[in-house]
Nucleic acid binder design. Structure first.
Lengths: 240, 240
DNA sequence: TCGGGTATGTGCGATATCGCACATACCAGC
DNA sequence: GCTGGTATGTGCGATATCGCACATACCCGA
């Protein structure tokens, strides 16, 4: 732990850090910095240099692509089940996507050099990061398929469920505008869909807050993508 | 080279094999089998075991996902610039997607065990495979964004260009039905779009054959996704 | 408590794609 | 040269989402 005063999160709250063998965790622990991740912060820009790897505890980060005309779409989300900055060890050092904080919270960060050093030992850290990358690939693939074939309501339910899984509470702090930009759809469409879900008793919301009332109901309205990705994460990372 | 009689392709036709340092290439070369890849062959099924890694020379392989209701969509394509079977070394051994041959030709294949052995040396083969995986991730991400925001015509042009880049000639052997299933759209939509492109003089076609007449014209009608992915492949794999 | 900025609600025509039905045309193989 | 199976062409109503315009309502902070 980097600080003497106990932080509001422990590194164990990030599943990847928790899954590391003790000796490796103790080697990197002194270098883990717990930092606040305010809503909207840009962790890296398309093509930009990465200086740290981020292991979210309570924050949620969105990897998305912004097109020439300004429209954008989320490619994948990263919460306490993952790490931001895989291109550090995959070799390219940058990616054409952007990473921003879409739900504020905290994360542990690790300097790029240290991350790469540990990865290059070609031991458990490397194997864990590669398995996680494989899970992330599944998430991205499923996003592609989902964007092609599933309705806005299905996609919104899927997105809420993923976000819920990575959140400490049942209340999500986010505007409909934010959700729309994540899914790459119109804000008005989200307003309508959210209204439907609220009338059905699945969620309730007020200005910038969404509370999930009926998780099973959301799962029933979500597309298969939610479960495919969730199962694959469990399969690949159950080593923990 | 595995055979004494010179095969129609040389391993050098696969860019990844060509990019390997000589000593490593010579170590695996005796184990590379040149095999024919007939149209429609399934290299692996969702969740199925992988017995080989495939390095296409003239064949093109499509990674796609088939949904519960039977609809499907391509996630990424692999040609002589890549390898099929990254989950072998990423750790999961399987993926929820399917790989099928969408343009017949040949590929070199390498037994899973040998692939993993070489990867686990944590040397140039590992670094090359990881860089390729990073490029593949870009392709998948861009597919997700493209599915969300770009028109069928833009997507068809993008797809034709990628296929052309991986083909030995300007004539592609494929039906409109096939293209439709790759893009996850209706066959009739492809018929209409193909008609437009032919009237514009960009392509010409007949029953199962498409010939590209004006590559620059296709590029002009394709979305930015084509160039983003192409540049990223070049950046990551220019080491060759 | 009161305002102002922002989040949400609603309506409506435009558009792209879908789903289905069926017509036509090609060409491989007899 | 036929012919059957398959690939391609075409039409049309249904649907989902978009793009825009504007109304309303919330809640934060002065």
């Amino acid at each position: 732990m980097p600080t003497a005063t106990s932080p509001p999160q422990s590194a164990i709250q990030n599943h990847l850090l928790a899954a590391l063998p003790e000796d490796i965790f103790e080697r990197i622990a002194p270098h883990l910095e717990l930092i606040p991740m305010p809503l909207g912060e840009v962790l890296y820009e398309s093509g930009g240099q990465l200086h740290h790897a981020y292991f979210p505890t309570t924050a949620i980060v969105s990897l998305h692509y912004v097109m020439e005309n300004g429209a954008s779409a989320e490619i994948a989300g990263v919460g306490n089940d993952g790490v931001v900055g895989i291109s550090l060890f995959m070799g390219g050092n940058t990616t054409p996507s952007r990473a921003t904080v879409c739900s504020s919270g905290h994360a542990y960060r690790l300097k790029a050099r240290l991350m790469m050093e540990e990865f290059n030992r070609a031991g458990p850290m490397m194997r864990l990061m590669l398995r996680y990358t494989q899970a992330l690939i599944t998430q991205m693939s499923q996003t592609a398929v989902c964007n092609r074939h599933h309705s806005m309501e299905q996609q919104m339910c899927r997105w809420l469920l993923f976000t819920l899984d990575r959140s400490p509470s049942h209340e999500l702090i986010m505007t409909q505008e934010l959700i729309a930009s994540m899914l790459g759809v119109r804000r008005e469409g989200i307003t309508e869909t959210a209204g439907d879900l609220q009338r059905a008793g699945l969620i309730s919301y007020r200005r910038g807050h969404i509370t999930v009332q009926d998780r099973a109901g959301l799962e029933a309205r979500a597309c298969e993508c939610y479960n495919v990705v969730k199962k694959e994460f469990r399969r690949l990372l159950r080593e923990a």
